[in-house]
């Protein structure tokens, strides 16, 4: 157990370092490349000044509208971009410690508030998709392993390969095109959104139905993202175990095939699947930009996408923070779960 403890301590110690490296990189990128909020504000001020000078087309032609230095300083201060990069980053990092992510440039609200509203929505979809993936992939993988090399195995393999070759958001697009517009004569599902506009006025039962109604298409999109990998992992893992000595022993004892597979082999082969929960979290985060944008779900992904378009630096940074934390904790959770459920595993040796 000694090696394991040092392994996890090392992993935990690496978290702050990783966190700082990545956020510092993104912070530097945002500060260095042109086209940030200051430039945009200056553009706006220039445009406003031009309009003030009325039809003064000559002024626009010369284009020599200078922004006074004080105004520039004011702007930089407002956007918290007045200090040099290391100092600015340090003060940003210090703010993060006290959960002060700053104020959104566009929305005016504190970033924490914006994110607190969005985060549960992403979690909701993340969890449902994860369990849906389990529900689909484990039975499929198991049945494929049992009927290895049969027609059933080959046929389902084609579905698995198709799932691998279609990105989730494209699946969402196609499903919405088929079932949420009048393409097939009727629209079964809503065209995106998290809930109906009149959700608050609905009764309890109607609320649940409405929510499910809006959930199905995005969840299928998320599901496709991990579908192929999970199924194949399940199948190979079970096949590996089927060749193991303890399975041979179980057969030799005279146990039924059903009992050997479902009681002995399956339990061991579920280990890698269970441990993949952490990595799945990271994958969901990456997929959410596309699916949330496509299905118009106001979660973290859509927020991140919009803030990139709007150059809303505080929110961009906050999204990166969440992305990194989810990935890091996800990886560690995976390792911990693995170590907990499989005593054979020794990390770091």
């Amino acid at each position: 157990m000694h090696g394991m403890t040092t392994y996890f301590i090392r992993r935990l110690l690496l978290i702050p370092l990783t966190f700082i490296c990545i956020t510092f990189m993104v912070y530097t990128v945002l500060r260095v490349v042109p086209g940030g909020p200051i430039e945009q504000a200056v553009e706006q001020i220039k445009r406003a000044q031009m309009q003030e000078s009325g039809a003064g087309a000559s002024a626009t032609l010369t284009g020599d509208l200078q922004i006074p230095q004080e105004a520039m300083d004011e702007l930089k201060k407002y956007y918290r971009l007045d200090k040099p990069i290391p100092v600015g980053y340090a003060s940003w990092l210090f703010g993060i410690m006290t959960l002060d992510f700053g104020k959104s440039y566009i929305r005016g609200a504190p970033v924490v508030e914006v994110i607190v509203n969005r985060f549960p929505i992403s979690i909701y979809f993340g969890l449902i998709s994860y369990f849906a993936t389990w529900l689909v992939c484990v039975p499929l993988g198991v049945s494929k392993a049992i009927k290895h090399k049969s027609m059933y195995d080959l046929g389902t393999s084609i579905i698995v390969f198709l799932g691998y070759s279609i990105p989730g958001f494209i699946a969402c697009l196609v499903l919405m095109m088929l079932f949420a517009t009048d393409a097939l004569g009727m629209s079964i599902f809503p065209l995106g959104g998290f809930r109906s506009d009149n959700w608050e006025q609905l009764g309890f039962f109607a609320k649940v139905v409405d929510q499910l109604h809006h959930t199905i298409i995005p969840v299928i999109g998320f599901l496709i993202g991990g579908f192929a990998g999970m199924t194949i992992l399940m199948k190979n893992s079970l096949l590996d175990n089927m060749g193991a000595d303890y399975v041979r022993t179980a057969f030799a004892k005279g146990l039924s095939e059903r009992r050997v597979i479902f009681i002995h082999a399956l339990r061991n082969s579920l280990i890698p699947i269970t441990a993949s929960i952490g990595h799945a979290l990271g994958l969901l985060f990456a997929g959410s930009f596309l699916i949330e944008t496509t299905c118009n779900i106001p979660g973290m992904g859509l927020l991140g996408y919009q803030s990139v378009l709007q150059r809303d630096y505080p929110i961009i940074m906050a999204t990166v923070v969440f992305g990194v934390i989810i990935r890091l904790t996800g990886n560690i959770i995976s390792d911990v779960i693995w170590a907990l459920i499989d005593p054979r595993i020794r990390f770091g040796t």
Binding site: L14, L17, T18, C21, I22, M25, V26, V29, L30, V33, P34, G35, G36, F285, A286, F289, G304, Y305, V308, L309, R311, I316, T319, V320, G323, V324, R327, L328, N331
Partner: peptide
Amino acid sequence: IYGSMPFFYVIMIIASI
């Protein structure tokens, strides 16, 4: 460290600018 970067998002940021 590198591998835990949300690379798709970082590419989005850099590409958008």
